Simulated scan of single mutants.
Amino acid sequence: MIEETKNILDEIQTIIQQKPFDYGTAKDLIDGLDLEKAPIELEGILLDCINNEDNDARVFAYEYLYYFGSEAVFQAALIGTTDDDDLVQMCSIEILGNLAKVESLPYLKKALGDNNPNVRCFAAESIGFVGTDEAKKMLEKQLDKETDSFAKVGIYSALHFLGDEAMLSNIIALLDDSYHLTIIRSLRVLEDCINQANKEMIKSSTKNLLERDIPISVKEAAEIVLEKLKRE
Rank of each mutant, 00 (worst) to 15 (best):
M1H: 05
K6V: 15
I12W: 10
I15R: 05
K19A: 06
K19T: 02
F21M: 05
F21T: 03
D22W: 06
D22V: 10
Y23F: 15
G32H: 02
G32M: 14
K37Y: 14
A38W: 01
P39M: 08
I40H: 09
E41L: 03
E41I: 04
G44A: 09
L46Q: 10
D48E: 10
I50W: 03
I50P: 02
E53V: 06
R58C: 08
V59S: 04
F60K: 08
A61H: 12
A61F: 13
Y67S: 08
F68C: 03
F68Q: 07
G69K: 08
A76W: 11
I79Q: 13
I79C: 07
T81R: 09
D84P: 00
Q89K: 15
Q89R: 15
M90Q: 11
S92M: 12
I95F: 01
L96R: 01
N98A: 02
N98F: 01
L99S: 02
K101E: 15
V102N: 12
P106H: 03
L108A: 12
K109T: 04
K110P: 11
L112K: 03
L112E: 12
G113N: 11
N115K: 13
N116C: 03
A124W: 14
S126Q: 08
G128D: 01
G128L: 05
F129D: 10
V130C: 11
V130L: 07
T132R: 03
K137C: 11
L139T: 14
L139Q: 07
K141V: 14
K141W: 10
E146L: 06
F150R: 05
V153T: 12
G154W: 00
S157W: 01
A158D: 05
A158T: 07
L159D: 00
L159A: 00
H160E: 07
H160F: 02
A166V: 13
A166N: 15
I172A: 14
I172W: 11
D177P: 13
D177H: 14
S178W: 09
Y179I: 08
Y179A: 06
H180I: 05
H180W: 08
T182W: 07
I184C: 05
R185W: 09
S186P: 14
L187V: 00
V189F: 06
L190C: 05
E191N: 07
E191W: 05
N198L: 11
K199G: 02
M201P: 09
K203W: 06
S205M: 00
K207C: 15
K207N: 13
L209W: 07
S217Y: 07
A222S: 09
L226T: 07
L226D: 06
K228V: 04
L229S: 04
